[in-house]
Amino acid sequence: MAPASPAEATPADPLLGVTIPFKHKHLLGISQLNQYEILELLNRAEAMIPVSRQPRKSLPTLAGKTQINLFFEPSTRTQASFEIAGKRLGAQVMNMSVKTSSVTKGETLIDTAATLNAMRPDVIIVRHAASGAVELLSQKVTCSVVNAGDGTHEHPTQALLDALTIRQHKQRLAGLTVAICGDIANSRVARSNLLLLGAMQVRTRVIAPRTLLPVGIENLATEVFTDMREGLKDVDVVMMLRLQHERANGRLIPSVREFYRFYGLDAEKLALAKPDAIVMHPGPMNRGVEIDPAIADGARSVITDQVEMGVAVRMAVLDTLLEETSQVQS
């Protein structure tokens, strides 16, 4: 197990090198975690990074375990990441994609949960279009459940991989300033990141037009900017979000080109951030909509690092949840 990185744990820190017990059966959201548990997951994920970099990418701690990826919403990237994470740990992984159109017609989510549960998996990874759906499913099964994104609620492994990526580049989290830009209202990535970064003493800003800001966001511990230039001043990290094309139909924002002009990340706006600021994006990107292609593929982009950290984080999450001694709840 890797020790806590120096930035979080000063030499006097009694937590240095201590394994923090993880008492949760499921990973449903960042909101359920405290800062120590987040730190523990990040440390464990960091320790997983070398596994994927070695020629034989295997650490068979989950040999004999069954993992089901249950995706009610299509997501090639996240599903592949969870699949690779499980397989590198030696688990048997089954992918189940459920067509969104047939969901709730006939078989309910709870029926599906009961059916899968009877096959005795050890962990189910769930993505669903409805907020709270993963939590509902977790109440109906006896195995562990990992939220791979529920509606516009949470996407905890994305927030963990983002934090790990930041820590890898900045060697710390506490004291940094992170700006999250774009469609905040409809983003589970933004919600999980705000929760995680807030818990880790990171200063957060959200940057978006009023129509893409959730109600009451100003009451959360974050600064709100509607002017991207103002919001990017002196930040350490610029986190862009994907703009769903259907938002740019004249209802929430008038057009893609207007959005790009005011809220797209280009060189001119990025110049306002700190000189060593990094650029992140959860993918998949819309080049020319929320981000200039030259920046997306440029030197300050850490977007492919995020993908790599994603596998490490998911390995750590699976390993932690399925560790037999870690399960306190039944």
Binding site: S131, G151, T152, H153, I217, L220
Partner: peptide
């Protein structure tokens, strides 16, 4: 209800 609480739950208000 359209409120901070809905925003936190990720539900449309």
């Amino acid at each position: 209800n359209d409120s901070l609480f809905a925003s936190v739950l990720g539900l449309k208000g």
